[in-house]
């Protein structure tokens, strides 16, 4: 294996259904339903997915939801703002744990 991430592997995603087709089918049915327009539009859902893809740092998902966002009518400005939401959450989540640092420091300090 030359690299852990190979773009062609995205096309093999369906292979994950080979050992547990029932779970795979249930997941895919759920997955498709999630991205249908509901209270949120398909475009908004693709932007959320794009932000989450960056938060979980999944290159397959970034590839897929960059394209999906463009194909739902979003532009780079909107997509960049969506990524900043992920960045803010990740940064904020780290920073808010600083309170635990302070709690611990206070507890063990004079």
């Amino acid at each position: 294996m030359d690299t852990y991430y190979n773009p062609d592997d995205l096309g093999k995603f369906g292979d994950m259904g080979k050992e547990s087709p029932e779970l795979w089918n249930a997941f895919m049915k759920y997955y498709a339903k999630v991205f249908e327009a509901g209270a949120l539009s398909e475009r908004e859902k693709a932007l959320i997915a794009l932000a989450v893809a960056h938060a979980v740092q999944c290159p397959y998902c970034i590839d897929a939801y960059t394209r999906a966002s463009l194909e739902k009518g979003s532009n780079r400005e909107q997509m960049t703002e969506a990524i900043h939401v992920a960045v803010a959450l990740r940064g904020g989540a780290s920073l808010v744990h600083g309170v635990q640092m302070r709690n611990t420091a206070e507890k063990i300090s004079f």
Binding site: S41, E42, R43, R67, L70, E71, K72, G73
Partner: peptide, 12 residues
């Protein structure tokens, strides 16, 4: 579209 991707749904 401005590239090698498909157009968005027309009505939306």
């Amino acid at each position: 579209p401005a590239g090698a991707f498909f157009p968005a749904p027309q009505a939306a």
